[in-house]
């Protein structure tokens, strides 16, 4: 992966700029149950260790999430009955009494205030990747409807399905998880240059992101292509915490873009 050291260094800087501490987005839902379902969906989309902070009114609830698992509620605990006792304690499994207790705390918070935002930052404590309750089991334990957002294909799976289906239609691609290139396809020469090219593109892309996409956009895809015969076109896709940079001939890039849209379109 040393070929991608510059890209990974760039991603670290750019994503830090993109997600400034305290910068949040709205947690969608009009009722406590809907907000809990939306939170489970967020947990299901979080691969890397993150401190998710839910902020609403004068309340803030901090959660440790990694590997699509809710690992713990963190300090400082919200001033809700029972919160202080749970804060900092890892959730061992879905059967533990702390799981329904945490749901009760969230339900109390979401019943008092429905306008919550959610923000994420690096987790500064480590619970281990196998600690916590997976999102699918959490949905069951918390009574989140199967028809809710948690049923949707997880971002990681969406990206895997997309990249696996590209086959020979692409020249090369890089799969990016957080700040790391986690997988790749293409010749060694093409991949070496693609890492550099991705770093150049992402510099401008993240700098202008807010002018390119609406604030609540999910599953963003960007295609930029020269005329046919001028070399590769590019596509960059992002969903949750995972993304991919794809190079393909200009006459192949539109079918590739449509495959992506078929996976993510509402």
């Amino acid at each position: 992966m040393s070929d991608f050291a510059r890209l990974e260094e760039k991603l670290t800087k750019l994503r830090q700029r993109e997600r400034a501490p305290g910068e949040g987005r709205k947690l969608k839902g009009d009722t406590a149950d809907a907000l809990i379902a939306a939170l489970v969906a967020e947990i299901d989309e979080t691969i890397l260790p993150r401190r998710l902070t839910l902020s609403g009114g004068d309340m803030a609830i901090h959660l440790a999430v990694a590997n699509r698992r809710l690992q713990a509620m963190l300090d400082p605990a919200a001033s809700i009955e029972g919160a202080a006792e749970l804060a900092g304690a890892a959730l061992p499994d879905a059967e533990d009494p702390s799981v329904p207790a945490l749901r009760a705390i969230l339900e109390t918070a979401f019943s008092k205030e429905t306008n919550f935002s959610i923000s994420a930052r690096r987790l500064d404590v480590s619970y281990g990747s196998d600690i916590g309750v997976p999102a699918n089991l959490l949905a069951r334990a918390w009574g989140v409807s199967d028809a809710g957002p948690a049923k949707a294909l997880a971002p990681n799976d969406v990206l895997s399905t997309f990249l696996t289906g590209l086959g020979d239609d692409v020249t090369a691609w890089l799969r990016i998880e957080g700040e790391e290139v986690s997988d790749q396809t293409g010749s060694a020469d093409r991949l070496a240059s693609l890492g550099e090219q991705a770093a150049i593109f992402l510099d401008g892309y993240f700098g202008k992101f807010e002018a390119l996409f609406p604030a609540d956009a999910k599953a963003c895809g960007t295609v930029i292509a020269p005329k046919s015969g001028s070399g590769d076109a590019m596509m960059f896709v992002e969903i949750g915490e995972v993304s991919a940079f794809v190079a393909a001939a200009p006459d192949k890039i539109l079918p590739i873009a449509m495959r992506w849209q078929a996976l993510v379109a509402e």
């Binding site: 895809g221 930029i224 292509a225 005329k227 070399g231 873009a257 993510v264 509402e266």
Partner: peptide
């Protein structure tokens, strides 16, 4: 070669 075609795609 300039960019000839561009797209910004979302789920919506």
């Amino acid at each position: 070669a300039p960019a000839e075609t561009a797209m910004f795609l979302t789920s919506a």
